[in-house]
Structure formats: structure tokens, C-alpha cells
């Protein structure tokens, strides 16, 4: 396990800045997540072969929040599901904590905590029961587990809902339970897949604060979103993904400086436009400008989301 890699925000790890990305990828040995030429295709009865990922490569390090920014359908969830061993890649490799996601999925799952917008909570279990159940699956001793649950419930302000069954929880409460469940075994890698979708402003802000504090404890956090402000406020490094391709990768400052756009939204529009029609996966899919406008809409829906 690689621990304590300094965050990019501290300036010790320069962000990479690659358009197009090199086929060889990066050579850093201490990264927690290594993704190399990751590809994924699947078949849709109506649309045919869909190239969800077309060979993306990136690294994510301990103590940093790596943001995957892209419109709906860009390939963010597919990437994160592959990292969480839920999907098998069609090509390329991905390792988490040094373990291969295809050949050592059981080991990878011990390294990660996965939270997504869809992550469900069992209706007929209380928050405490659910977190406890997963803690046991991770092999934690009862004494350690109880202490850990108390600690997490305190930290996430979940004491009031500890004995509430899932069916009676609000979306925000459920998301907190999901986070507690993902953190119970203290994994070195945390994967948040559009975790703020469907949350109200207050809960979303609280969630982002929690994620921010997790970085301080040295976790490697991969955070996918289509909301630009979340990226600007939270992420140390950003990968902009569009139509299954990683268009840009680096710290926000590096990206803005390189492309000459001060605004992340302008930068995103610029990259999407530059990727052009060649990036279109299929003729039946939405054209790039529409994707871009969907992003703009999503942004407009969340007027206040500072961390």
C-alpha cells in the first residue's frame, strides 16, 4: 500500500497536462491508482457498438482528490465502475493499490470504498446495522468495529439516524450511510461517482466538506462529477473526459494556463469543440454542443456549492 503521497495542492506533485495522452502513460510507481489505455465497449441493440472508453490513462495519488469531469455519458461512471471491479474492461489495464482490477478483484475491493448516486441502502436495515454488516464483511473485529462505527457516526453527524431504517431515510441521510459504509474499513482509496446528484444544496455542501477532510487523512479520492464548481472547489487534479476520451489532465491552474481560459466552463467548451466530430461515438448520439449545454444546465441547477 502506498501511503502519504503529498497532495498536488501542496505543489509537490506537478499535474500532468496531456492532449493527446501518451500511449505509454506514466511511470510513477507510487500512485494508488494506475489506469493505462483503459477501453470499454458494449453493445446496444439500437445503437450498436458503443465505445464507452477509448483508451484513457491517468494516475491518482494518495492525499489528493482527482476529479473526473465530463458530461452525462462521457464515460465517468464506466471508468469508476471498472476501478470498483463492477465492470470488466475491454482493453488496457487498471490497478488499485497495486492490484489488478481484472485478475485480483477481491484484493482491489479491500482497497476501496465506493459511493455512487445509485448506491442503495437496504430498506429494512438501520444505518448502524448496515455499516456494521459491511464492517464484518471486511473482517473487522467486533470491538474495533463498534469503535469505528461510533467514530464515523460522530464525524458524519449520523447519531440521530443510527437506528432509523433505510426506508425512512431521506436521500441525504442515505448518502451519509453510504459514505459511512464505504469508510468503515478505512480504505486507502475512495471512489465517489456523482455522489452529489439528487442532494439538496445543504447536504451536498456537507458531503463535499466530508470529502475534503478525507483528503487531509491521506486518502486517494477519485471524484466524478459534471458540475464544474465542485471540481474547482474540491479537486487537486482534473481529468476532462468526453466521449470516452480523456481530453485533458492536470491541475486546474495548469489547464487554465495552457488553454488560456480562466473559466473552467469556457475551458470545457473549448476542449469539447476541439475534440470535434471525431470524438462522436456513434451517429445516433447527441452532438457535442448539446452535451456542452447539458453541462451548462447542470451547473445552473446548483447555484451555490462552495466547499
Amino acid at each position: 500500500m502506498v501511503e502519504g503521497s503529498p497532495g498536488a495542492r501542496s505543489g509537490k506533485r506537478p499535474g500532468r497536462f496531456l492532449v493527446p495522452l501518451p500511449a505509454g502513460g506514466f511511470g510513477a510507481g507510487e500512485s494508488m491508482i494506475q489506469v493505462r489505455q483503459l477501453a470499454k465497449h458494449y453493445f446496444d441493440l439500437r445503437l450498436g457498438r458503443i465505445e464507452a472508453l477509448r483508451g484513457i490513462s491517468f494516475d491518482a495519488y494518495a492525499g489528493e482528490i482527482f476529479g473526473l469531469l465530463g458530461a452525462n455519458g462521457a464515460g465517468k461512471t464506466t471508468t469508476l465502475r471498472i476501478l470498483a471491479t463492477l465492470l470488466q474492461p475491454s482493453g488496457g489495464t487498471a490497478t488499485v493499490g497495486g492490484y489488478d482490477v481484472v485478475r485480483q478483484p477481491a484484493l482491489v475491493r479491500r482497497q476501496i470504498g465506493y459511493v455512487s448516486a445509485n448506491t442503495g441502502v437496504y430498506d429494512r436495515m438501520t444505518a448502524r446495522e448496515m455499516v456494521e454488516h459491511f464492517g464484518r464483511l471486511y473482517g473487522l473485529e467486533q470491538r474495533v468495529l463498534c469503535r469505528r462505527i461510533d467514530e464515523l457516526f460522530e464525524r458524519l453527524q449520523m447519531r440521530e439516524i443510527a437506528e432509523l431504517p433505510g426506508a425512512k431515510m431521506s436521500t441525504g441521510m442515505k448518502q451519509k450511510v453510504s459514505i459511512a459504509r464505504a469508510l468503515v474499513h478505512d480504505p486507502p482509496v475512495l471512489i465517489f461517482d456523482e455522489a452529489t446528484v439528487g442532494l439538496d444544496v445543504v447536504v451536498a455542501r456537507s458531503l463535499l466538506q466530508i470529502i475534503g477532510t478525507l483528503r487531509e487523512s491521506g486518502k486517494c479520492i477519485v471524484f466524478s462529477t459534471h458540475i464544474m464548481r465542485e471540481v474547482e472547489r474540491l479537486c487537486d487534479r482534473v481529468g476532462i473526459i468526453h466521449h470516452g476520451r480523456l481530453l485533458a489532465l492536470g491541475t486546474l491552474e495548469e489547464l487554465k494556463r495552457h488553454y488560456g481560459h480562466e473559466d473552467l466552463e469556457d475551458l470545457f467548451y473549448h476542449l469539447v469543440a476541439e475534440s470535434g466530430s471525431g470524438a462522436a461515438r456513434h451517429e445516433g448520439e447527441l452532438p457535442a454542443p448539446e452535451q456542452a449545454s447539458s453541462l451548462a444546465r447542470s451547473e445552473a441547477e446548483r447555484p451555490c456549492d462552495s466547499v
Binding site: 471491479t85 477481491a106 475491493r109 476501496i112 465506493y114 445509485n118 442503495g120 441502502v121 464483511l137 459504509r181
Partner: peptide, 17 residues
Amino acid sequence: GEKERGTLETLLCSPAR
């Protein structure tokens, strides 16, 4: 039912094979 409730993903991410 687990698929409907969205809990299957949670379970598949656990260390249980």
C-alpha cells in the same frame, strides 16, 4: 429486488466474492 433498490452495486463492491 436488490437491483431495483440499487443495493446490488453496494454488495458487489464488498470484499465478498
